[in-house]
């Protein structure tokens, strides 16, 4: 499971829905894996405003990843200094180092094994082979 997904995941239990502590889920005893993939600049631009940067930093710190900058990058940071575009010609945008780092953290770093713990109810969701188990027993739904 990508770290990007973890940035959107909340506790599934109904009672936790109203509590702010149900997001983000805290990774425990985690085994990480890097899965290489092609950088997708339009996607990064699309998803950037929807990221919760503060929570992403917390999770990165909990996982022992290198510290992320304090403020989120903006869309302009993702593109290498644009060359002067000639009229009527489209220039392919070149991803900057920031974009490549972001791609590395969000889309290539994946959780392979471990647990995700809700900050509110302390329910543990097991992750096996990169697939988290979000099936709940009937009384918690």
């Amino acid at each position: 499971m990508k770290l990007l997904t973890l940035n959107f995941l909340t506790c599934a239990i109904k009672a936790c829905k109203s509590s702010p502590a149900s997001f983000p889920l805290h990774p425990r005893d985690v085994e990480l894996e890097i899965v290489e993939s092609d950088i997708n600049l339009p996607f990064l631009k699309n998803i950037l405003p929807r990221l919760m940067w503060a929570e992403l930093r917390t999770i990165a710190a909990e996982l022992g990843l290198p510290e992320l900058p304090e403020t989120a990058p903006t869309r302009d940071h993702l593109v290498e200094g644009k060359e002067e575009a000639k009229e009527g010609e489209e220039v392919d945008e070149v991803p900057s180092q920031t974009a490549r780092d972001l791609h590395r953290v969000l889309l290539e770093t994946t959780v392979k094994e471990g647990k995700l713990v809700c900050g509110n109810c302390a329910h543990e969701y097991k992750v096996m082979e990169g697939v988290p188990n979000f099936l709940l027993p009937g009384h918690l739904v």
């Binding site: 499971m1 995941l9 909340t10 990169g130 988290p132 188990n133 979000f134 099936l135 739904v141």
Partner: peptide, 22 residues
């Protein structure tokens, strides 16, 4: 596959924060 997979029952709700998906 490239996507992230979840073992979950859609009838129990969708465990993502508001405004996640396009």
């Amino acid at each position: 596959v490239d996507g992230d997979l979840f073992l979950a029952d859609a009838g129990q709700g969708v465990p993502f924060r508001p405004g996640t998906f396009d």
